[in-house]
Each structure stands twice: as C-alpha cells, then as structure tokens.
C-alpha cells in the first residue's frame, strides 16, 4: 500500500535527487567522455568538453572487433537459453505431473545444485573439458552456462506447474492423449508467462557471464563480449576515451532493451533470486 497521507518532505525530495544523480552522473560521464579526444579529456576529465565527436564509437567498434564478439555472445546466449528452456521444462513437467520411482530424489538433486557455488566445480570442470578437448570451443561456454542455469529453471517451473489447474489435462487424457502431447499442447502453451520469466533470467545471466569464458576461452577469435572487452581494456588502458566509447557501445542496446521490457526484466531477475 501507499501511505497517501504522508506528503513529500524536502528531505525526501533531496534524497531522490541525490540517488538519481548517483545513477545518472557516471553513465552521463561515460557517454560524454566517449565523444572527447584524449588530450581534452585529460585536461579536464569532468566538465564541459571542447567538442563532441562521435568518431570514437566507430573506432572502438572496429578496434574491439565488436561484430564478431557480439555475434559470439548472441550465439552462446541463444543456444544456452534454448537448451535450458527445453531441458528444464521437460524435467519440471515430469517432476510436477508424472509418477515414477526416484522422482523426488531427482528433484532434490537439482534443488541441491542451487546452493553449490560455481567455485565448487570450476576446477573439475576445467580439467574435464580440457581432457575432452573442448577448451577454446563454443561448447565450453554453452554447456556450462546451460548446466548452471538448469537447477533454478527447473525449480521455478516445477512450482509454477504445480499451481496450474489440471482439468484440461484430465480431459485430454480422457481423449487418449499421450503425456508428451499434454506437455506440448497444453502445459507449455498455458505456461508462456513462466517461460518468458525463465528466458529473461537465463539470457541475462548467460550474456553477462564472465568467469566461464575467462577460464575456458583463450582464443581471441571466439571470446564473447565480456572477456573480449576485458582484453580490450587491458590492451588500450591508456586510451581513456576509446574505452569509454567501447563501454557505451555495449551498454546502449542493453539499456534500450531494459527500459522497453523493464517490468518483465525486473520480475525475471528477482524471481531467479527469490527461489534461493
């Protein structure tokens, strides 16, 4: 509820403005600095720039080879999300609707997987993928991303399915439908809300993943956006405005997507955390 009787005090107004400044000023500083020259930036890092020049964006885009790394990130993220949604919905459907021995034990195992930090298996994962010859392949990102995203997706989807009414399914079974037909034609179509939530959560997590490609991928050609940006920042650490331009390029599409879908994104991310 809202305490409508309480009117805004000047202190509250000041606090809101201060908070907005804390969030807006660094972002604004990044965009403005990205359009300056290095000498101009170093002379007065904060202040009115001598001139604004968008050329840095083009230079940063080309020097960071952004088309390639955006492409890698898109492939890795899309595949990860597709795998997670497919595998998790199948498993969650069986945990929620079907009866077989070991079902609760299996679900318990996934629940346990929720609490393990990535550091519990990182060393083993690296050695395993090394011996499988999968280091420096795109699979060394997709499989770990998907594996790490499964547990939370299964738990969220299982509880969602549990809360769905089963009358439609019962009548489908009366008509002789198979369990797979019920999954595909009834359960999944009425669960689009949770599929979207889990997709958003998985997509953002996979897109932002840094540790896995940092450990698994040493080949510059298949680095995703995150680690390629890290390498770029290390190499051009003295070229401040170029770095700001690169950061702006990465941030801008994410901001646009976020502000268009803010409701769904906020719900998706908080749902992912609340089930912990």
């Amino acid at each position: 509820m809202r305490l409508t009787t309480v009117q805004g005090s000047w202190f509250r107004r000041f606090l809101v403005l201060f908070v907005l400044a804390v969030y807006v000023v660094p972002i604004l500083w990044m965009y403005v600095s990205a359009m300056r020259t290095d000498p101009d930036f170093l002379a007065r890092p904060v202040g009115i720039p001598a001139s604004l020049n968008p050329g840095n964006f083009v230079r940063a885009y080309q020097m960071a080879d952004m088309t390639r790394h955006f492409g890698i990130s898109i492939i890795v993220t899309a595949t990860t999300t597709a795998i997670v949604i497919l595998f998790a919905s199948l498993a969650a459907y069986s945990f929620s609707r079907l009866r077989y021995r070991g079902r609760n034990v299996l679900f318990g195992v996934f629940f346990l997987g929720l609490i393990l930090p990535v550091q519990s298996y990182l060393v083993g994962l690296f050695v395993l993928f090394r011996s499988l010859g999968l280091l420096n392949t795109i699979m060394a990102m997709i499989l770990p991303n998907a594996g790490m995203g499964l547990a939370i997706a299964i738990v969220i989807m299982k509880y969602y399915f549990d809360a769905l009414p089963t009358t439609l399914e019962e009548s489908a079974y009366m008509d002789g439908a198979s369990t797979f037909l019920v999954y595909r034609r009834i359960v999944m179509p009425i669960s689009s809300a949770i599929v979207i939530t889990v997709s958003i959560f998985t997509t953002i997590t996979a897109w932002n993943e840094f540790l896995i490609p940092f450990v698994m991928i040493q080949n510059q050609r298949i680095r995703p956006l995150t680690t390629s940006l890290f390498v770029f920042a290390t190499r051009f650490s003295a070229q401040y405005t170029l770095l700001f331009a690169a950061l702006s390029i990465v941030v801008t599409p994410m901001f646009i997507i976020y502000f268009v879908f803010q409701k769904q994104v906020q719900a998706g991310i908080t749902a992912g955390a609340l089930k912990e």
């Binding site: 795998i83 595998f87 498993a91 009866r99 083993g124 395993l128 499989l143 790490m148």
Partner: peptide, 21 residues
Amino acid sequence: AWLYAVPAMLLFTLIIAVPTA
C-alpha cells in the same frame, strides 16, 4: 515417464555433479 528428466540430468551430471566430485 523418467525419460523426461534425462536430458536435464545428463547435463547436470556433466557440468555440476561430476566436476564437483
């Protein structure tokens, strides 16, 4: 019915269970 959980179980085993062990 247990087959539905197999893909998730395999991936979980490969990425989390076995590497943790």
